[in-house]
Simulated scan of single mutants.
Amino acid sequence: MKNKKGIILAGIIIGILAVALVKLGNPVNMGICVACFIRDTAGALGLHRAEVVQYIRPEVIGMVLGAFILAITKKEFNVRGGSSPFIRFILGFFVMIGALMFLGCPLRMMLRIAGGDLNAVVGLVGFIVGILVGVYFLNNGFTLKRSYKLTKLEGTMFPIVNVILLSLLLCAPAFILFSKEGPGSLHAPIWLALSAGLIIGALAQRTRLCTVGGIRDVVLFKDWYLLSGFVAIIVTVLIGNLFLGSFKLGFEAQAIAHTDGMWNFLGMVLVGYASVLLGGCPLRQLILAGEGNIDSVITIIGLAVGAAFVHNFGLASSAKGTTFNGRVAVIIGIVVIVGISIINSDLKLSFKKKGDVKVDIN
Rank of each mutant, 00 (worst) to 15 (best):
Q205I: 04
E51V: 14
S167G: 07
G355E: 12
L165P: 03
P173R: 02
L270V: 10
S83D: 01
H311T: 09
G302F: 02
I301T: 10
D217N: 10
A67V: 11
A255W: 04
A289W: 01
A99T: 04
V297E: 03
T236A: 08
A304V: 13
N119L: 03
S296V: 05
P183R: 03
W263D: 11
K358L: 15
V53L: 14
F175N: 14
A50N: 14
A174S: 15
V218A: 00
G214K: 01
M63W: 10
H48C: 12
E252K: 14
V28H: 02
I87P: 07
T143Q: 08
I331S: 10
I332R: 03
G115D: 04
K23E: 13
A120Q: 01
G92N: 12
S147M: 05
Y148W: 10
G306P: 11
V60D: 05
D223P: 02
G201E: 13
L21M: 15
A193V: 10
G214V: 02
A188M: 11
T236N: 03
L124A: 10
V64T: 06
G141D: 12
A18T: 06
L226V: 01
I131C: 00
F37K: 13
P58M: 08
I90S: 08
F93E: 05
A193W: 14
T259G: 12
P173K: 03
L107F: 15
N140H: 15
A114E: 04
G261D: 00
L138M: 13
R206W: 14
N78E: 02
L70P: 06
E181D: 12
F158R: 02
I12N: 07
I334G: 06
A308W: 02
P85D: 13
I337D: 00
L124D: 04
L283T: 12
D40E: 14
V269N: 02
I32P: 06
I190K: 02
G279F: 01
R108N: 03
L227R: 00
G214L: 05
K145V: 00
L100Q: 11
R39T: 15
I331P: 00
A253D: 05
G116R: 11
V276T: 14
V133S: 05
L249M: 14
F175L: 10
V135I: 13
K348A: 07
L303R: 06
C33G: 12
I199T: 15
F230L: 09
G98V: 08
V338E: 13
P85Q: 14
I337H: 09
E76I: 04
G333T: 06
K149H: 00
L177I: 09
I239A: 15
M30Y: 04
K320A: 14
G250T: 08
A10F: 12
V53G: 03
R327Q: 14
A319G: 10
T211F: 09
P58S: 13
F175M: 12
V121G: 00
E59L: 15
E154F: 05
D117W: 02
V218L: 06
